[in-house]
């Protein structure tokens, strides 16, 4: 059974405080029955250099992405992964990772596609754990394989496709969480070096620019509720009930923003467009806006 939420004053400001745990909570609870701590990083080797004792590794590229089709693993592959990592369907999963939990949030989002009920983030991620001088080990975590059930992925609630974005252009608020240079379409690379993989620069018209890391504090934890409300509600203009789509380059950074909007601010219809700019910036005849202005939805794109 999932374990109780951490009773932590710092988290009570958020809409769903049970989605966060502190580094201390992890130190106290890692290895207990019903709790599995998962490290998920941008760097595929970081876990091997030292991880929280008792944690297991999930790599977004080799474990969560389908190798042939550009998609996530299916229900069977996910069940195999979870079983291999010693995770049961009703376990509490706590994910942590590098870069302010950027990739940890991505793993959490993918776990949510499969309806895993209780997935939390360790606030501050790997950086905070290390900064506090807590123990890391290179010892292999002993795992007892489980028999995780095959549950089909449900993309309908928290995942957006290009068609969804295009059809609702001008009505669904879009949040572009990439860097300002990626948003404006300015080239960031040096002459003589190819730009990586997209044929057009810029952003989806009407999208607001909010780089994902604006939601993270210096110590890699999340900013306070007030600070987050000031950004997403006041500055961007999001309101309760909005159908919101976040995107970035391949859907990883926007998972972080998805977590913030959904679990910290309590918006209940937020989707992550994982096709993101590597799809949109290569797609034929989709509208693109350049520069700092959000841009208008063109007539007749729907």
């Amino acid at each position: 059974m999932p374990v109780e939420a951490e009773n932590n004053q710092d988290f009570s400001q958020y809409a769903h405080p049970e989605r966060l745990v502190s580094t201390q909570w992890v130190a106290d609870n890692v290895g207990k029955p019903g709790v599995v701590v998962v490290e998920s990083d941008e760097d595929v080797l970081l876990y091997e250099t030292g991880h929280i004792p008792g944690s297991v590794k999930v790599d977004w590229h080799t474990d969560l992405n389908e190798p042939d089709t550009r998609d996530y693993v299916d229900g069977k592959q996910f069940a195999e992964l979870m079983s291999r990592k010693g995770i049961s369907r009703d376990d509490t999963i706590v994910v942590y990772g590098d870069k302010s939990n950027w990739w940890a949030a991505y793993a959490l989002w993918v776990f949510t596609l499969f309806g895993h009920q209780d997935v939390r983030l360790m606030n501050g991620g790997r950086d905070k754990w290390v900064a506090e001088g807590r123990e890391l080990t290179t010892d292999t975590t002993e795992v007892t394989p489980t028999d995780y059930p095959v549950v089909e992925r449900d993309d309908s609630v928290i995942r957006a496709y290009r068609e969804d974005v295009l059809e609702n252009l001008g009505t669904t608020p879009l949040i572009d969480v990439r860097s300002p240079q990626e948003y404006t379409g300015e080239r960031t690379h040096m002459p003589d070096y190819p730009q990586e993989g997209t044929l057009r620069g810029g952003h989806i018209p009407t999208a607001a620019s909010v780089p994902w890391a604006r939601a993270a504090a210096e110590d890699a934890t999340f900013k306070s509720r007030d600070e987050l409300d000031a950004i997403y509600r006041e500055e961007v203009g999001l309101s309760d009930g909005d159908d919101i789509v976040a995107y970035c380059r391949i859907g990883e950074r926007s998972s972080h923003t998805w977590f913030v909007l959904t679990h910290l601010l309590g918006f209940d219809k937020v989707r992550n467009y994982d096709g993101s700019w590597t799809e949109w910036g290569n797609a034929v005849r989709v509208p693109v806006a350049q520069g700092e202005a959000r841009g208008e939805a063109p007539e007749g794109v729907r």
Partner: peptide, 9 residues
């Protein structure tokens, strides 16, 4: 940096 083992590799 040591926190970037893949890049270092």
């Amino acid at each position: 940096p040591a926190e970037a083992p893949t890049t270092r590799g």
